[in-house]
Simulated assay, not measured.
Amino acid sequence: MAFVESKLFGIRTALGLQWSCGMAKQETEGLFEGEIGRAIEMIKPGNGVRIIGAAGSGKSTVIAELVTRLERFGHTPRVINALRTQRNIPLAAIDALELATRPGRTRVVHLANALSAQLAAQHQPVIMIDDIQYVDQHSLAVLEDVLRRTDCPLVTSAPASTPLGQDHLALLARRSEAVIRLHPLSDSETSSLARRTLGNPLTRAAAARLVSASEGNPKLVVRIVQAAVLAGQLSLNGKEWKMTSDSLSNEHMAGTLEEMQSELSPEQVVALLPKPDTAPTANPAGVRLTPREVELSALAGEMTNWEIAEYLEISVRTVENHISNALRKTGTTSRAVLCELVRKTAGRGR
């Protein structure tokens, strides 16, 4: 695979590979000062905080900055960065804390004892969980036991649109908490973030198109302009970046969309996907989908199979089968497109 040397990003970028998950600190510096300040004011007296927002809205950035600020103020953050790929692995989240336990003592009560003892020995400890929706059930049991024994504040991040499971809600209920919502960037903030990312401002027309495509989502702002430069859709004209085409969708956005698809709206995903040479021929209005296939297809663009299964209290295999059948019947290969087609058909009174 060919590599492109990019002084713009300061890295060697492999074309077609996914972008890194986080946003550079210098790109987002100053964007979340108000939210971070409110969170710290809640944590100081021992309250919990939940940071919520859409995919790419900056939740992980806020958590990371809170860790830095809390350490500066004398707190001891214990951080769990929960991963989607490990959400069904027992104790995966707790294992990340590398608790010191005796050989063979790996049951929930043993791990809760070890973590509680560590917190008691640390100065102003704070438990921090990024993406709490991905914490496995066994780790949730450990954490709930620890919160029952201690008065340690709990700081979490979670998506605004995806419902949390009962075990996750039970853990959050252990602490009074303030919910801090990350709102979309304003038009001026979007343009400013693009300028920090690229080093030069966008033209007025390019900035307007970026605002429309990103809907003020910080991660999308960064990824869209980076991908547009790689695809030749943005070109530096003097001191401004100018659009060279009518679209900001391209193949370099595929990794970002796959990463964020479960929390983006179908409209956002469809708008940012590369446009096919011909329109899809599938039309759900002429296809007989079962009521269950319609129900699950309408959720498929915004939620993963695991999240749908948890939300509807059915098995993941059942979800997989129904969505696979719907994709086959409609002749589509994209969950986002399937979701869009089903919703439009329902809106016409199918």
Results as ranks from 00 to 15, higher is better:
S191Y: 02
A346W: 13
I323E: 01
G53Q: 09
A228C: 03
E41W: 11
V67N: 05
E259G: 03
S212H: 04
N81G: 05
R105I: 00
V135D: 07
S247D: 12
E259A: 13
A55S: 06
G74P: 04
L341N: 08
A309N: 06
S247K: 00
A208E: 10
T203D: 11
D167N: 14
A54P: 00
K59A: 14
I52M: 06
R50C: 14
A178H: 12
V49A: 09
G165N: 09
L210N: 10
R288M: 15
L17P: 01
G46S: 08
I89Y: 08
R348K: 13
D136P: 07
K239A: 13
Q261C: 00
I308F: 04
N321I: 15
C21F: 14
P153A: 01
A93R: 07
L171V: 10
I40P: 00
V79P: 01
D145N: 10
H138G: 00
Q86Y: 13
T278L: 12
K59W: 09
P163L: 11
S214I: 03
R317C: 03
E65A: 15
G10L: 08
S245C: 08
V146F: 13
L15Q: 10
P77S: 10
D130N: 06
S191A: 13
T68W: 09
N113T: 10
V4Y: 03
I63N: 06
L185F: 12
L97I: 05
R335G: 03
A93Q: 10
A173L: 05
P266N: 05
P90E: 03
A228Y: 00
V229M: 03
E27M: 06
I132W: 11
S116G: 15
F32G: 05
T304Y: 08
R196S: 13
I52Y: 02
A208H: 06
Y134N: 06
T61R: 08
N237R: 06
T304F: 06
G255P: 02
A117D: 14
G331A: 07
K242G: 01
N217I: 02
P103Q: 07
G22I: 09
M128I: 14
E259F: 14
R105T: 01
A121E: 01
K239D: 13
R78T: 03
F32H: 13
R148I: 02
L66H: 04
S60H: 09
R328I: 07
A96V: 12
M260S: 00
S157P: 04
V155P: 01
G238Q: 11
I308Y: 04
D151I: 12
L97G: 04
A194C: 04
Q118A: 09
E340Y: 15
